[in-house]
Amino acid sequence: MLTVAGVYAPQHDTRLLMRAIEQEGMAAGTHVLELGTGSGALAVHAALLGGRVTALDISHRAVPGCRWPGLR
């Protein structure tokens, strides 16, 4: 995953949070809100698990910097 300058890049804590999301046993269509999404890695992970995700960030660089094939 690539991020642009000024956007929080995924780090070791990102993987920890991904595992926590998986352990929640998210049902398809579960609403997920991620504040301060940065790279969007957690939001995308939740979406791939079936969540209906809203991801927000104060940085104007965060959203255009997210490039995930196959997701809108």
Score class of each variant (00 low, 15 high):
A55H: 09
P10D: 08
A41H: 04
S59Y: 05
A41I: 14
R52E: 15
A55T: 07
A28Y: 10
T3R: 10
M18C: 08
L42N: 04
G38V: 04
D57W: 09
L48C: 01
V4W: 15
G38Y: 03
V53E: 08
P10N: 10
L56C: 13
L35K: 02
G6W: 08
G38R: 05
H12A: 15
G25R: 11
L49G: 02
H45Q: 02
E22I: 01
G65M: 00
A41D: 05
L48N: 03
L17T: 05
L17W: 09
S59G: 05
H60E: 09
V44H: 06
H31S: 14
I21P: 04
A5G: 12
Y8E: 13
A46E: 04
D57H: 09
T30W: 05
R15H: 13
G65P: 02
G65H: 05
W68N: 00
Q23K: 07
D57E: 10
A27V: 07
G51R: 02
G6P: 11
G29E: 06
P10Y: 06
D13V: 04
L33N: 04
C66T: 04
I58R: 14
A47W: 04
D13L: 08
A5V: 13
G25Y: 07
V44Q: 10
H12M: 14
T54V: 15
M18E: 15
A55Y: 11
G29C: 10
Q11F: 08
V53I: 12
M18Q: 14
A62N: 03
R19F: 03
I58K: 14
A46H: 02
R19A: 12
T3F: 13
G38L: 01
T37Y: 00
A43P: 01
M26C: 05
E34R: 10
A20G: 00
G51N: 03
H12S: 15
A27T: 11
R67H: 14
P64Y: 09
M18S: 05
G40K: 06
S59Q: 07
L16R: 13
V44A: 13
Y8W: 15
R52I: 08
P69G: 07
E24K: 10
V44Y: 12
L33P: 06
G36Q: 06
A55N: 09
A41W: 07
G29Y: 11
D13Q: 12
M26N: 02
L56V: 14
Q23D: 11
A28G: 09
G36Y: 09
W68P: 00
G25P: 01
R19Q: 14
